Amino acid sequence: MIMADFKSSLSGPAPAPGVAPPLAALWWAAKGDWGKAHAIVQDEEGAEAAWVHAYLHRAEGDLGNAGYWYRRAGRPVASGPVEAEWGRITAAFLQGEQT
């Protein structure tokens, strides 16, 4: 899937079938459903879920909690607009970047 397709899917009622949980969480975050996004990654293991978890807490303004999750993800604490971070994470996952 490419970014344009992923963004187009935001007009639908749910992420595409088979989308990995971290990407599904980013999908729900883009739809404005922080709670659903958080519920998806909260119990997921792995660096990708931790990265999304960090992003979500940063987006809500809980920077201390975000810092913990960035460390778990092995990622530096993000700066700049959260929208830009959403785009970077989503693009990395869609391109198959290993975290």
Rank of each mutant, 00 (worst) to 15 (best):
A47M: 08
I2R: 15
G74S: 07
A66K: 02
E97C: 05
E45Q: 11
G74N: 06
P22Q: 02
A78W: 01
V52N: 01
A66F: 03
K31W: 04
E60R: 08
A47L: 12
L63M: 13
G80D: 14
S9M: 07
A73R: 01
R88A: 06
G96N: 07
G87N: 10
T90Y: 07
H53L: 04
A29S: 14
A59Q: 12
P15H: 11
A73F: 00
D62H: 04
F6V: 03
A39P: 05
S8M: 11
L63E: 15
A39E: 08
W51R: 01
R75M: 15
A84K: 14
A66G: 05
R71D: 15
F6G: 03
W27D: 03
G32W: 15
W28K: 00
A24P: 05
A20Q: 10
M3F: 15
L94V: 07
Q42C: 09
D5E: 11
Q42V: 07
A47K: 12
R72Q: 14
S79F: 12
Y70A: 05
V41K: 02
G32Q: 08
A37W: 04
A14D: 07
Q95A: 15
P17D: 14
L94H: 07
A92L: 07
A66H: 04
A78K: 11
A84I: 06
A54L: 06
Y55M: 13
V52S: 00
D62R: 06
L56R: 04
E48L: 00
Y55C: 06
R58I: 12
